[in-house]
Design a protein around this nucleic acid. Structure first.
Lengths: 248, 248
DNA sequence: GCACTAAAATGATGTATATCAAATTAGTGA
DNA sequence: TCACTAATTTGATATACATCATTTTAGTGC
């Protein structure tokens, strides 16, 4: 259990100077649905995207706004969430580089149904839906690949539903920690540091519980040596025990 | 409040004689993602589908089976659900005619992650994924339309998550009744009969609660004159009051 | 190293809903 | 019309978790 003086998290790209065309080209090829394209095809597509940098906490879009872009995380992390009338936030997902978000409603016009916030300093690519439709028309294989990822998104959303209805808070949180360490994990001597700033409130909003309950669960995990944690950071020390909690 | 001697539900197609090629052709055009095709294009596509009839309660596929088909409900209703280890059933959706289900994972092989059960006598079309991939390659507009519906599915799944984490059982059930009456409602003198057999347990599995809690909520709704209900059937008498519960 | 502050932890209490148990009844089929 | 049975209802009790209130502390910036 470390008594540290500073966050173990790295100060993630506070400026956006690197969020450039070169990065676009190198990173866009990593996105699953462009993976099978040839280099010259990819180049054509890259041109249609524009890159933007967001600071941690910046709103990328807000629920209710007209949905005009499809976006891809190239660096950093993006939180998708719904703000409810009563002031509760429901976090739907936290996206890592390579994930797409925004709108896929290519027919007719639509509105974003969730909000997107940069969870850490992030470089995001966007493409207008009209441009994207043209890409799909030109490269049917891209459409098939996206269909695949979007089926995967539906799947994970359904898993979320299942957890909310069948698992207690402790298990749900264990699951979240496991997923986050897969998405954002960085190997350290003592364990896996989740390279993503997130508070107890964020965790609670992901698990569908309260800050206090999340805090209690995390305290227990730390007492049992499963994690080491501080403000906005978590390091998983004993993945096996975490998995055991999920199974039982 | 009716004291009836028999179910008001119609005995939905216990035989499958009508579940034929003609039905395929007429109904497939109604499916949103084939809607924009010309008649001769549609005819080509129809040939690749085969039709099957299922009795209420029949398993169409089971979670864990290799996922080889994409299916479309042409008549009846299909329940998508996950059976958990501890014996709890989580109902993800109840599909009405025109909805697709099954696999969209066209790349590589996969396994069904949920189970599908005919909720009433149903006529279902299926197409092998290889055939379907060919259709997509031939008609990119179909791909775009499916992307659209699958975005819609994700949306409704996220709405489900939001409800589970922010709304009490009563509100969740009110919402389900409203949705079902939109999907399966049949106008009667007294109100809207939900033309779909579903038990308190089904309702509970949809709302993520227990049979007993679902029953208590339904009893109250009936006392307040919002619904009339019996075994496996519900008629909504006062939609406005239902909506009021959802809002408040 | 020290003071500062928002994040996190902890404690006491309340409540919605689950659980367990039993009684009632709707709708069937003879 | 009647007996039958699974679906539904109802009641009593338990419990996980929320809520409210307060204290503690990690990590920053000076």
């Amino acid at each position: 259990m470390g008594k540290r003086k500073t966050t173990p998290l790295k100060d993630h790209a506070p400026d956006g100077h690197h969020c450039t065309l070169e990065l676009k080209t190198t990173k866009l090829g990593m996105v699953s649905f462009f993976r099978d394209l040839k280099q010259d095809e990819l180049d054509q597509i890259v041109k249609r995207f524009s890159a933007n940098h967001y600071q941690a906490g910046d709103e990328i879009y807000y629920q209710g706004e007209p949905a005009r872009y499809l976006r891809v995380v190239v660096e950093g992390a993006v939180k998708l969430l719904e703000y409810t009338e009563e002031g509760k936030d429901v976090v739907l997902d936290i996206l890592n580089p390579g994930s797409y978000f925004g709108s896929l409603k290519l027919l007719g016009s639509d509105v974003y149904t969730e909000s997107a916030v940069a969870q850490s300093g992030s470089c995001i690519l966007s493409i207008g839906l009209k441009d994207f439709r043209e890409i799909l028309q030109g490269f049917p294989s891209v459409g098939i690949a996206i269909l695949d990822t979007s089926a995967e998104k539906l799947r994970s959303s359904q898993e979320h539903i299942k957890q909310l209805t069948t698992e207690p808070v402790e298990t749900r949180i264990a699951n979240i920690l496991l997923t986050l360490s897969e998405k954002f994990g960085e190997n350290k001597e003592e364990g896996t540091l989740i390279q993503l700033p997130f508070s107890r409130k964020d965790l609670a909003d992901m698990a569908g519980t309260t800050t206090e309950s999340a805090s209690r669960v995390m305290s227990n995990f730390q007492k049992e040596g499963i994690i080491d944690t501080g403000r906005q950071w978590v390091e998983v020390e004993d993945i096996e025990q975490l998995k055991a909690i999920i199974q039982k």
